[in-house]
């Protein structure tokens, strides 16, 4: 391990400078500013002075700090915009701690900020600090809000048509759920909670813990989808949820019975057929299903 004040000299080539700068500006802020200590053990001011020029008003450290602050402000703001429900539930302070931890562990790997929150739900589930008791619900809220992002701009594939359905052998054709649709099983009524949050004055609720909303505990099956390019939430029953889960991975009508076997023990054949028929009819109208181009007809 390098001794304090004797860190390995950085490579002054272009990539060496960029590596050092990226490593420093993505470090979490300490009391709103750049960490005074570099991980090598050197003073950050010493490290900054090795590659950033000071000017007549600011030191190398201060100039680098501007980029460090901008990095965190920008990324946290982006997550704030995409996860208003999680912020309303956790409160501003805990939200910032959570997303800082998330971003520290998961640096952005996409050119677009749109994808920044894709792993937040899983992060909350597997990282209980500092919200041990809230992590499960927080994770479900984050998963719901990520579904909102997906529903907003994910692909719409040409859906199954009546003409397709009338073709011979259609029941053996593998069908999939539209890419923009998410199907969620929630322990809480997160859908009503998010709808409420969207109508709230977030600033007011964040500043007062007593006014902070919380979802009601209720087993909820919900589909996040869009109609005419507007995002909607639709509750479904447990049977429909199972069917949609199966279609998410791709399945033909003919193979549904077998795939449902363990779930549908409590239903007789007529009930299963009616459930499939009614739901399929509705989902076709909603354009939720399309023919899987990779699998086409199953044998």
């Amino acid at each position: 391990m390098p001794k304090r004040g004797h860190s390995k000299a950085f490579s002054s080539g272009l990539t060496g400078v960029q590596t050092l700068m990226e490593e420093i500006i993505t470090r979490p802020l300490v009391e709103g500013g750049l960490n005074q200590l570099h991980h090598s053990g050197d003073e950050m001011s010493t490290v900054a002075a090795r590659f950033i020029k000071p000017n007549s008003k600011l030191t190398s450290f201060q100039r680098l700090e501007i980029y460090n602050q901008q990095y965190w402000y920008r990324l946290i703001d982006s997550l704030r915009e995409d996860f208003p429900g999680l912020q309303a539930y956790l409160g501003e302070e805990v939200f910032e701690l959570v997303v800082t931890g998330y971003l520290e562990e998961h640096k952005s790997s996409s050119y677009t900020l749109r994808n920044l929150g894709s792993g937040l739900a899983n992060f909350l589930l597997s990282n209980q600090l500092p919200t041990k008791s809230k992590s499960k619900l927080g994770s479900q809220i984050a998963a719901f809000e990520w579904s909102d992002v997906i529903a907003f701009d994910e692909e719409f594939v040409e859906p199954v048509t009546q003409k397709d359905i009338e073709k011979p052998g259609f029941i053996n054709t593998s069908l999939r759920l539209q890419p923009y649709i998410s199907v969620l099983k929630l322990d809480y009524a997160v859908d009503s909670f998010i709808a409420k949050v969207k109508d709230l004055d977030i600033t007011e609720s964040l500043s007062d813990e007593k006014k902070r909303p919380s979802p009601a505990k209720r087993l909820t099956y919900c589909v996040v989808h869009r109609v005419d390019n507007v995002v909607h939430y639709k509750r479904v029953d447990s049977f429909a949820f199972e069917l949609l889960q199966i279609f998410k991975g791709g399945c033909s009508i003919n193979a549904l019975g077998e795939r449902l076997s363990s779930f549908a023990n409590n239903y007789d054949d007529a009930q299963i057929a009616a459930q499939i028929s009614n739901n399929f009819s509705l989902w076709t109208k909603l354009q939720w299903l399309y023919i899987d181009p990779e699998q086409g007809q199953e044998k």
Partner: peptide
């Protein structure tokens, strides 16, 4: 960006011939 990590910032370059 570097090594697949994106900063989402428009960072200045060192003004070098290599750059």
């Amino acid at each position: 960006s570097i090594d697949g990590n994106y900063t989402h910032d428009l960072l200045p370059l060192p003004y070098t011939k290599e750059a």
